[in-house]
Structures are given as C-alpha cells and as structure tokens.
Design a protein around this nucleic acid. Sequence first.
DNA 1: CTGAAAGCGCTAACAC
DNA 2: GTGTTAGCGCTTTCAG
Lengths: 337, 337
Amino acid sequence: MTIKDIARQCGVGVSTVSRVLNNRPDVSEEVRQKVLAAVEANGYIPNNSARDLVKSRSDAIGVVVRGTGNLFFSAMIKTISREIDRRGYTMVLRYLSSSEDEVKAGAILEREKKLRGLLFLGGRFNYMPEEMSLIGVPYVCCSYTNSFGTLKEKDFSSVSIDDFKTAYDAVTLLINAGHKRIASFFDLCDDHSISELRYEGYCAALKDHGLPLEEALVVQTGGFEMEDGYRGMKELLQRGTSFTAAFVESDMMAIAAMKALRDGGKRVPEDCSVIAIDGLALTEYTSPTLTTMVQPCDEIAEESVRILLDMMENGTGGVHLRPQAHLRNGESVRVLP
Amino acid sequence: MTIKDIARQCGVGVSTVSRVLNNRPDVSEEVRQKVLAAVEANGYIPNNSARDLVKSRSDAIGVVVRGTGNLFFSAMIKTISREIDRRGYTMVLRYLSSSEDEVKAGAILEREKKLRGLLFLGGRFNYMPEEMSLIGVPYVCCSYTNSFGTLKEKDFSSVSIDDFKTAYDAVTLLINAGHKRIASFFDLCDDHSISELRYEGYCAALKDHGLPLEEALVVQTGGFEMEDGYRGMKELLQRGTSFTAAFVESDMMAIAAMKALRDGGKRVPEDCSVIAIDGLALTEYTSPTLTTMVQPCDEIAEESVRILLDMMENGTGGVHLRPQAHLRNGESVRVLP
DNA sequence: CTGAAAGCGCTAACAC
DNA sequence: GTGTTAGCGCTTTCAG
C-alpha cells in the first residue's frame, strides 16, 4: 500500500494525497475527507524511509547517557522516551561509561543516525565552543550545566538543579543539626563537573557557618558507582579522622557508604548522620531511610524534551531552567543535643 | 557527499561502490582499496533512508519493556542496547506499564517503526498463536517463557531462568535452614505469568519437604513495585499469622518487605528470614544484605540479542535457553537452631 | 486548488 | 569484475 494506491483509489493525484497527509491547507475539504477515509480504510501508513530520503533528514533524537550505574538516569529515560514518542519522534539511546566522552559520542551518533537533536544525560561542565562545533544539531544538557565552560547561553540549553546551592543546603542542614565535623564524598573535587560544583557548595556552607574545611574529611572516590561510595567510606574510616556526619553526592553512593559505616561498626544516624542528593524512591525503603535532596526528575525530563523540540522545530535559542530540589527527611540524620 | 561522488572520484560506477560498501565478494581487491580509501578520506557515510527505502525495510529492532519500576530490566537494557549497536542495528525502546499489553504494543511499534525484530522484556506466559499472528517479525521473550500458552516452540524464542526451579530452590534453602512457617509474596498467584510459576515452585518445595501450604501465609500484592511489596508485608503482619521466613519474588519487593518488617518491629533475619530472586548489585549494600537467587543478567541480554539477530538474518527457528540462576548468600537468612 | 514529473541516494538486476 | 539503469515511496516545484 503506497501513496499511489491511495491516490488511484480516490481518483486524485499523489501530490494531493501528500498534501492531505502533511496537513497542508491548500486542499478542498471535500477531497481531504475522501483521502482521509481511504487512508483509514486501508490502514495506510506512509513510508518513513521515503519521507526521510526526500527531506534528507530523520525523525531521530539522540539520547546519550553517561554513567551506566546511575539509577537516577534510568528513571528519567522512561519519561524522556515517553515524551519523545508522544511528539512523533524516535529515540536513539546510547549508553556511555563515565570514562567516555559524550560530545564525541554524540557527534558520531548524530552522523550515524542522522539525528535532529541531542539530549545529554549527564556530562562535563566545561564545554568550549570549538569542541561543540562537532555537534551540528540542537542539544540540551539534561541535569547538568556549563558552569566551567565558555559556551554562549544562547547556543545551547540546559535543565538542571543548582548543584552548588543544593549541596550548600544539604550541608547547612547538617550544620543546623549541630554537626561540626562533616565528611564529604565526591567523584573528584576538581573534575570541572557536577562533583566540583557540589564540593564548592560543601565548602561554602562550612565557611558561611564558621567551620574549617578539613582536607582529611573530604574523600574523592574516583567514581560515581556504589562500589566507589563503599570504598570511599572504608578509606575515611581507616584514616581515623573523627566525624559525626557525611554529605554524599548521590543516593546510590550514600547507600553504599552507609553499608561501609555498618561494616566498620558505626550506626547511622547515631554515630554518623548521612545526607545525599537525588531522592530516588528506593531510599525511602532502605534502613535507615535516607535524608536526601530530591531532584524533580519528571520535570527535568519533560522540560528537556520540550525545550529540545522547540529548538529543533522553531529554531529557538538557548533556554536554561533551574528547577528546585527539595528536602525529603529520612532517618539518616540525627540532631545533635 | 553521496555514493555518486565517491564513484566519480574513484573513476568507477556506483554499483561498484555499493558492492564495496556492502562487503560483496565480487570486486577486485585493487578497486576495493581505492574505494575504501575515498570513503575514508571523505568521511562518507551511506544514507540509511535511501538504503532502507530500496530494501523496503529498516535496521530497527524494537525493545518492549513491561513494568517500569523494574531495576532488573534497566540493567539489561544497557547490555541489549550495546549488543544491538554493535551489530549495526538501531534500538527502538518502548516502556509499558504492567497493565498495558505488550503484544499489542509490539504490533503497533512494528508497523510504526518498520521493525525487523522484537525483544520483549517481560510479558505474559500465555500467548496463543492467533494472538501472536499480530507480530509479523521474529521475536524473543527475554526473561520469560510461554509455559501457559500454546505457541509452537519453533515459532518464537525465549531466554529465561527456570522460574519454577529457582523459586523451588530458594524456598528449599529456607526449609533446609530449619524454617517451617514460610510466607511468600507474589504479584498474583494465578496470573499465568512469572508469579504463578514462582508460586508453583514455592508450593512444590513445601510439599516435597512435607510442609503444609497455608493460605494465610501467601500474599498477593497485586503489583511488582516496591510499594506493593511494602503493602503486602504490612498486610501479612496485620493478619497475625506467625512465620519465621519469607520468600519474595523480586529483590525490589524484598527490600520494601524488609522495611515493612522493620516498621512492624521485626528484625531481619532474627525474627524473619528473607530470600528473593534477581540478584541486583544494590542488594549487596542494603541492611541486611539480601540472600537472593542471582539471574545471569548479562548472559540473558546478550543471548537474547544474538538469537533474535540469528532469526532475522538467517531465518532460524525458535531457540529456548534456560540459563541457571545461582544463590548469593547475604545476611537476610538465619539458620534456625 | 490540483496533477505531472523530477528527483532524494541507494540497491539490484541486467548487460557487457 | 564492472558499469548502466530502473525503480523503492515520497515531497515538491511548476504548470495549469
């Protein structure tokens, strides 16, 4: 069943059918109805390859996910996938390990699959214009920004919580609970990425409340996975430095860190309070439940797609959204007497 | 840059270039090298739409995932995606809530995206031939089988652990540890699906060891999500029936059930032992760590893709793989004195 | 408003 | 072995 068959059946030309199919206004209502009826009756579906060929473009949107163990991203992908579908596009998904470069991967994917747009789930915060010229389609940074880069605001879009502020708020909460010796866990503190921003937030909170920054309390885990969180906490315990609370940069790492505390004979929150960022549903069921800054996961996902399509379809410039993270109280933080 | 440009540049015909591009044997080595060099030099990438158009097919493989909260599937999708990419195909992903019908969704997806094959991640176990005639491409049931259906073995493929046996083994382990009153948690015991099979395994294990099947110890949660596991255990505790162990059909539900136990003032494993099926990495970090039957997640994913491509490319018939689940000992099971 | 016809880039006969 | 050529199904001028 092709457009020709429909045309013949309706006694009109193929171009007329094409016009109807593409919602062109210049078709008489009478003919339009006739064509629509024939399409319906025959269960005709236009051939996308032919369409793409002549328009020399596809309906594909690339989604590049960096950091495979990240449960937070898994949740977002579902929403993103649903939104992309709903708008009539096709999602092309690519997973990257945290050591791979998302820009290079995105550029390759763009050419391979003839992408119309790109959505990056996680990435570096220090893009430079020369580097991004590899990317020839609109893109949005989903759950991160370009704080350390030199991109012009209008040349890209981003949707992300304020990492600095969220970390600042989390640490402040610990301080207000009476904690003075607060350990912290990051992938790398100078990665020019999410960890650096959250580290800065941690430092600022200490400083603003008159607490010293002790290097011995900062742990660089060298990764974002659970095993990294576990190893990090093990290491800190071995250092022998005392602390009464810990700020961990992600829920998954926090779960692992709490296990390391238990294995080291410490109770949460009696011996050590823990706070994290993400707000995974899972952490409402752990023992103890986790106190964490919840990222508005669905909002970030939906807005990212909306903004990307707007850039693709209407050529709009960069939009930068900063949805708020909010606190969810669990059992992992103890108020000191 | 098109195939014509390459042809002109090499002083050969387009069909020769096409032959080289498609690894056809009937090209002289000399010409092949020349063409390859030109392709390389120009960074030429064939236009997929044109290719698909003339072959009237796409390179898309549909992956339909049922049950969105399932962390086990999230892990598999990464491997599946990687394998599909590696073999030069494109993955089209569709998430379904557990109430939607995967066959209908697959059939629609097949037409919308011109799929070459389908991979179902989770689904009913009672497919009938009439129903499956909706699907016009090869498909494999990933992590489930057709135990309650009437499909001919050669008409489809499946890769899954033996749910009956795995449940049987898990429950037997509890029995061997001295437990006599073993509660159990399933979505629905007669869903003609994964839960029914695991329920049967539970029943058989009790019977084979001379233990009675008590209805009051069987909980139907009506869902596969964490909240269902939590609600289920709450309900059981309210019934007041005594029990010393619980078999839960998935890790995520087990985590939630353990929380309900804690909330009810019970300790794991002192007051109640817990065993589950899945083997998520996560459950090595929970408190207590979970004793669980580990599904060989990567193996299932890789084999599923391999088998599907084999069906697509070589028209092979149904293959049915039953990889073994194996026990991972955690802290959630106590051996009764 | 509508139809005829020219490609979009590629593959696969078919001739040489 | 290799080149020529006829479409694959659709959109889009360009006439009418």
